[in-house]
């Protein structure tokens, strides 16, 4: 049976991670490559690197991180943040990333999804979307851009469907309402989007406890769950989260 994926997100600013102060003792704090390696060894299924800097002049630093990660991590990982053209995408993929994630860029220029999918394949193109509850939006959720700061005219459900039609191979759905609360994922929007599209949906925002992952897999129909602070600050290991999920009867990959 296809297993539910546990994905760790690493925010990278100028080649350094912005979280991770209590991370394992033997790891160079703030080095995304070292952290990636440690999570890989701990059994994470996939990684996401989000380039906070996301400026053209600093792209090279991120590319170098991608290259070094790809040399020693043999699981899929994606890169997002400021990738606005197919040339940007190509550079990241050739450095060794499996997928690229577009968010704000896709809202301002939806054609980037089509051209990226045509050139590199649907499986390479991930749509990141930040959504918040909004009764004035058709599905009850509205899309925001620029890390949640800018309100758009897009309805969440409609945008997810459009992105799938344009060729996105996966959606990372981040709930602005749940993000940072550590009180659990937004189950309602996750289930709504996951059931409306035929591509995998990765739940994001709000994870604080292993139980939250169990619920978003069971009740939210998520295909994968993104986590960050619950592992970065040393509260849980990936292995602990996986064994919790396995004990709850959720199919997860276990490594020996």
């Amino acid at each position: 049976m296809l297993q539910k994926r546990v994905i760790i997100c690493l925010d990278v600013r100028e080649g350094k991670t912005t979280k991770g102060i209590k991370f394992k003792g033997n790891v160079d704090l703030g080095d995304p490559v070292e952290m990636a390696r440690a999570y890989y060894e701990d059994g994470v299924d996939e990684l996401v690197f989000y380039d906070i800097t996301a400026s053209a002049e600093k792209r090279g630093i991120m590319i170098d991180v991608v290259r070094r990660v790809a040399e020693q991590i043999f699981i899929p990982f994606s890169v997002g943040g400021g990738l606005g053209s197919v040339e940007d995408m190509r550079e990241v993929l050739l450095a060794g990333a499996e997928k690229i994630s577009v968010n704000t860029q896709a809202v301002s220029n939806p054609g980037i999804i089509d051209s990226g999918a045509a050139l590199f394949g649907n499986q390479c193109i991930v749509l990141g979307m930040d959504v918040a509850r909004d009764v004035s939006s058709a599905s009850g959720y509205r899309v925001y851009t620029h890390g949640g700061r800018t309100r758009t005219q897009l309805d969440a459900l409609q945008w997810a469907r459009e992105a799938e039609q344009r060729g996105a191979g996966e959606i990372v759905l981040n709930s602005i309402d749940a993000d940072g609360t550590k009180e659990g994922y937004e189950l309602n929007v996750t289930r709504m989007i996951s059931e409306a599209v035929g591509i995998p949906v990765v739940a994001s925002g709000g994870a604080g406890e292993p139980e939250h992952l169990a619920r978003v897999f069971r009740e939210g129909n998520a295909d994968a769950a993104l986590i960050a602070s619950m592992v970065h600050y040393g509260k849980y290991t990936v292995a602990q989260i996986k064994s919790f999920l396995a004990a709850r009867g959720i199919p997860v990959r276990t490594t020996v």
């Binding site: 049976m1 499986q123 191979g169 994968a224």
Partner: peptide
């Protein structure tokens, strides 16, 4: 195409 069976088959499987 089948309800609940997403295509592509993507992720870890046994």
């Amino acid at each position: 195409a089948r309800p609940g069976l997403k295509v592509p088959h993507m992720g870890w499987n046994q």
